[in-house]
Amino acid sequence: MLADLRMSHVVAGIVAVLVGYTGSVAIIFQAIEAAGASQAQANSWMLALGVGCGVSSLYLSLRHRMPVLTAWSTPGAALLAVALPGVPLGEAVGAFVFCGVLLWLTGVTGWFEKLAKVIPDAIANAMLAGVLFQFGLGVFTALPDAPVLVGAMCVAFLAGRLLMPRMAIPLVLLVGIGVAVASGQFQGGVGALEIARPVFVMPEWSLSVMIGVGVPLYLVTMSSQNMAGVVVLKASGYAPPVSSALSVTGLLSLALAPFGGFAINLAAITAAICAGPEAGEDKATRYWAAAVSGVVYLLLGLFGAAVVSLFLVAPKALVVTVAGLALLATIGNALNGALERPSAREAALVAFLVTVSGISFAGIASPVWGLLFGVTVLYVLSPEDRPWA
């Protein structure tokens, strides 16, 4: 099994974690501040989230032999940043525990897995392309602000694709770091490198906080993260182990809640990096990319504040460009899968456009609306393409 590990797996796993941290650390810090947590408790939050993602990614990817990558709930952190001011920390932790129970129950009952099986492949691919679209676009929107850095990375990508295709993304990352360091684009200092310690907070039970914070945290985690994570794996050609994944992440959320692990769930964007062609030519061995991510999550979680500060001082253009270039092949494959069948093309296009639009109604994010709109159009115009027909 270990003989299947390739450099492409290692690089994809590291890039996935890099994108995960840089894309959400600032939001998590806002949630920590809103909760009124101390510095030691803040380090414990990052430790709990890193351990939760690491353990679940390692276990699920190795058990199911597919790139089942997990993450913390970034939309959930954004919700907490708004909902937690004025809420005692113990009651907030009680809401985290309640959310973990709901996530675990969703996994063990199996209803969500049944729902996931009826999502048409064309609509799943369209939603995936829509979710990743902004990342591909980000390469070019970052170009005017950092032309030398982004330009050098794009040239490295082209050279890598021509000369050593499997090493194109590692080359992009190395060139980006080199140019950023040489031009002084790493701004600010890095905290002391010390191992974070878990800090236990006794849960307190408030019905209003459980309903007002715990239930919305569960809903945004399910709609914005777990649904998207299932679609990413489905669109990448895998049969996602939905119930197993939700049971494991729900149980970990429940266990880590008193230490700040507010919600662990299936990853979406970062999972696409591990499940896509850039992670390896052989689809059957890409689970190693998610396993590598799990190890990296564990290591980074242990070093709390120092690692987080490093991600915060990295130039945004570097991360955006690495992510966009790493996802190009996945975006192309998703678009091809979405538009391949003429009879489902209009429905897939609707799903793609709604997802790209970024609309949000009733606290439900655009990817879920994209799925709903796309399935509705498919149901009306192309009944022969319904997966349940």
Score class of each variant (00 low, 15 high):
residue 4 D to A: 12
residue 4 D to N: 13
residue 5 L to N: 08
residue 7 M to G: 15
residue 8 S to V: 09
residue 10 V to Y: 03
residue 19 V to S: 12
residue 19 V to F: 12
residue 20 G to T: 09
residue 21 Y to M: 10
residue 22 T to N: 05
residue 25 V to H: 08
residue 25 V to F: 14
residue 26 A to Q: 04
residue 29 F to D: 14
residue 29 F to Q: 12
residue 34 A to R: 10
residue 37 A to Y: 14
residue 37 A to N: 03
residue 40 A to H: 04
residue 42 A to V: 07
residue 43 N to P: 02
residue 48 A to P: 09
residue 50 G to S: 12
residue 56 S to P: 10
residue 56 S to K: 02
residue 65 R to L: 11
residue 66 M to N: 01
residue 67 P to I: 13
residue 69 L to Q: 11
residue 70 T to P: 11
residue 72 W to S: 08
residue 73 S to E: 12
residue 73 S to G: 12
residue 74 T to L: 11
residue 81 A to C: 08
residue 82 V to L: 15
residue 83 A to F: 04
residue 84 L to G: 05
residue 84 L to K: 10
residue 89 L to W: 02
residue 90 G to N: 07
residue 90 G to L: 10
residue 94 G to M: 14
residue 94 G to A: 14
residue 97 V to R: 13
residue 104 W to L: 15
residue 109 T to M: 10
residue 110 G to W: 09
residue 112 F to N: 06
residue 112 F to V: 14
residue 113 E to Q: 15
residue 116 A to Q: 08
residue 120 P to D: 01
residue 132 L to Y: 07
residue 134 Q to E: 08
residue 138 G to I: 11
residue 139 V to C: 08
residue 140 F to M: 10
residue 148 V to S: 01
residue 149 L to N: 07
residue 153 M to G: 02
residue 159 A to N: 00
residue 162 L to M: 14
residue 163 L to C: 07
residue 166 R to Q: 13
residue 171 L to R: 07
residue 179 V to L: 09
residue 179 V to S: 04
residue 184 G to K: 10
residue 185 Q to L: 15
residue 185 Q to G: 14
residue 193 L to N: 04
residue 197 R to Y: 05
residue 198 P to K: 03
residue 200 F to Y: 15
residue 201 V to R: 07
residue 205 W to S: 13
residue 211 I to G: 05
residue 211 I to H: 00
residue 211 I to F: 05
residue 215 V to D: 04
residue 224 S to K: 01
residue 224 S to D: 10
residue 224 S to W: 10
residue 226 N to Y: 04
residue 231 V to P: 01
residue 232 V to Y: 03
residue 235 A to L: 13
residue 242 V to P: 04
residue 254 L to S: 10
residue 256 L to G: 06
residue 256 L to D: 02
residue 261 G to R: 03
residue 266 L to I: 07
residue 269 I to H: 05
residue 278 E to Q: 14
residue 281 E to G: 15
residue 285 T to K: 13
residue 290 A to V: 11
residue 293 S to P: 11
residue 294 G to I: 08
residue 297 Y to V: 02
residue 300 L to M: 15
residue 302 L to T: 04
residue 306 A to T: 07
residue 309 S to F: 04
residue 309 S to C: 12
residue 315 P to F: 00
residue 316 K to D: 08
residue 317 A to R: 07
residue 318 L to M: 15
residue 320 V to L: 13
residue 331 I to M: 14
residue 332 G to W: 03
residue 334 A to K: 03
residue 334 A to H: 08
residue 338 A to R: 09
residue 339 L to R: 06
residue 342 P to E: 11
residue 349 L to S: 13
residue 353 L to H: 03
residue 357 S to P: 10
residue 358 G to Y: 02
residue 360 S to V: 01
residue 360 S to I: 02
residue 361 F to I: 05
residue 368 V to Y: 06
residue 368 V to K: 00
residue 370 G to Q: 05
residue 371 L to S: 02
residue 371 L to Y: 09
residue 372 L to T: 01
residue 373 F to N: 03
residue 375 V to P: 02
residue 378 L to S: 08
residue 384 E to P: 00
residue 387 P to V: 05
residue 388 W to L: 11
residue 389 A to M: 12
residue 389 A to T: 06
